[in-house]
Each structure stands twice: as C-alpha cells, then as structure tokens.
Design a protein around this nucleic acid. Structure first.
Lengths: 152, 152
DNA sequence: CCAGATTCAATTGCGAACAATTAAATGTGA
DNA sequence: TCACATTTAATTGTTCGCAATTGAATCTGG
C-alpha cells in the first residue's frame, strides 16, 4: 500500500507546482505561436523585441539580465533577428567587448503591428486583468525567491 | 510622449504574465538541475519518471497526454532513458502501433533516491505548502483555459 | 607600466520542443 | 471484402536553453 494518500504524495505529478508552471509556459507558447507567426517572430524573439522596444542600443548582457538568458542563447537568436532586418549588431567603440543591439526602422515599426498581441492573450486567458496581475506578481515573487537560492 | 503610463502599458515586459511564467519555469529548471544531476536525469526526464512511477507499462501517447508533449519530443527522450537502463520500450502485441514504456528495476529503484527532491524544492521556494498549492491550482486553471482555446 | 584577473560575446555540444512528414497498423463504411 | 480514413511512433529540420570553453578587451594591484 502507498505510504501516503495520493493527494498529498509529494512525488505525484499533479502535486508539483513546477509542472504547473512548466506546462503553463508551454500552453502560453502554443497560444502565442499563431499570433507571432504573423510577425515572423518566435516567442523568445518576441521577448527580446519587448526589451528593445523599451530601450535599444543596449549590450547583449543587458538583454540577458532582463530575460535571464545567456550569450549562448542570445547570440544566435540576435543573429536571426539581424538576418530578418529587425536589429543591427555593432561592436561598441567605447568598450570593444560589448556588442550593442539597435532596432532597425523595421524593428521599430513592428511594435505597432505587435500591439494586437497582448489583447489576444488576455482574451485567451479568459480572466480579469486584476486576477492576472495578482497571479503575475505572485509568480514573479516565487521566481525571484528561486533565483535567490541559485548561487546559495 | 508615450501613449500610456508604463505601469499600464500592455507591451511592457514586466506587465506580461507569460514572461513571469516563462522565467519562473527557467528558475525552477535551474534549481532542479543540481538535484537531478545526482539522479542522472534532466527535468523533462524527471517528469516522465514521475508519470511512470505512478503507473508504467503505458503507451507513449499516454505519457504525452499527461505532459502535453508529442512523440517528436518523447521518442528521443525515452530512447535516452532506455540507454540509461531506466525504462524498456516494447511494441504492444495487441496493437502493434503502440510502444509500451515499462520501468526497469533500476527505474523503480530511482523513485526512492528521488524522494529528497520535492522537499528541496519546497525549501528553495521559501513559501508555505498551502500558498504553493493555491498558486499551483491557479496556474493549472490558467493553463487549462489556454489549452482550451488552442483548437478554438 | 604591466602581469594577472575579470568581463563580454561567441562557440561547441547536448537535450529539449515542435511542426511537418512518413510509415505501419488498425478501424470504418459502402 | 476492401478502399479509405485514422491512429501511433518515428523521423527530419529549426529554434531554444544552458554548460563549458575560447579569445579578445578591459580593469586592477603592485
């Protein structure tokens, strides 16, 4: 007989908050896909564009800190965005170690086309804005606590 | 001047619940990594093992429905678990289309070694069980609403 | 001034994740 | 029965995500 009731079993899949988060992330990805296809972006590329729409001409490292991604992920992704003529990569003249990422005119223009994305996601969430904001804040707080123990 | 205050701007990264979920999933992954390294598992492999520890001798499709993954992801992953002698893949005799996944003795035994994982995650979450359960239920409900609109 | 440490991006290699296709087995209706 | 559709895994190709390493530029202490 099992040591614990399954609803309390810490090794049960449905009791894992990590799986809830993992599977929700994939569900978001699938909802975003058709919307982003029309923009010619993948979801991680869309996140990079959100960062750059707030402020561009920033080094790769800044984007990485914002999105919790490293150069192994960002370098090839940014090269693809450059190949799509959405960004320009130029080595900084003040510090030759840095590569600055700037939006092209097309990159700036895409922000307008992307304006319909968040409302579509909101609709798919089938949830009030205030509920979503509350959930977001809780999830961000959890994420930050997890990230805090990574260097323990 | 910007059209909206940034705290309300739907195109601002920090206002995206999807990014909260996405970045929390990666944070979980990083916390799990050192724990799972000792078991010789990656995080998605750990999820498959959680499914199989509940019930094994199941077709690939069942695992996929449980984890929201398809054969393109699972086939190579299961081959790696087989190479690690944790599962055995055998074609069903009743329905030759299906490949049944069964745990090996080592696969069963790993469940005991994995028992320390959930408490470590709980500790890293720095949060009460009841709060985590409440968050999990909210996230699962959101995930299910998102998945519901995928075939719209 | 300069040797050694640090920072930054790029690279390599591996394991997901998924779309699209393929091939084989099974199910179905006329 | 048998042509045709459906189901199931496997395969192929592209893109992430990260660990580990490399190499160049910059910083720092003596």
């Amino acid at each position: 007989m099992p040591r614990k009731l399954s609803t309390l079993d810490p090794q049960r899949l449905d009791n894992q908050i990590c799986f809830a988060v993992y599977s929700a992330a994939h569900a978001f990805n699938r909802v975003y896909k058709p919307l982003l296809d029309r923009l010619g972006l993948t979801y991680p590329q869309y996140l990079v564009m959100l960062v750059l729409w707030e402020r561009d001409d920033v080094p790769v490292k800044d984007i990485g800190e914002r999105l919790f991604l490293d150069s192994g992920t960002l370098t090839p992704l940014l090269k693809r965005l450059e190949a799509a003529h959405l960004v320009k990569r130029t080595r900084s003249s003040e510090d030759e170690r840095q590569v600055l990422i700037a939006l092209t005119p097309q990159g700036h223009a895409l922000k307008e086309k992307a304006r319909s994305v968040p409302p579509s996601i909101l609709a798919a969430s089938d949830c009030s804005v205030s509920e979503l904001v509350a959930m977001k804040d809780e999830i961000v707080a959890l994420r930050d606590r997890l990230n805090a123990v990574i260097g323990e």
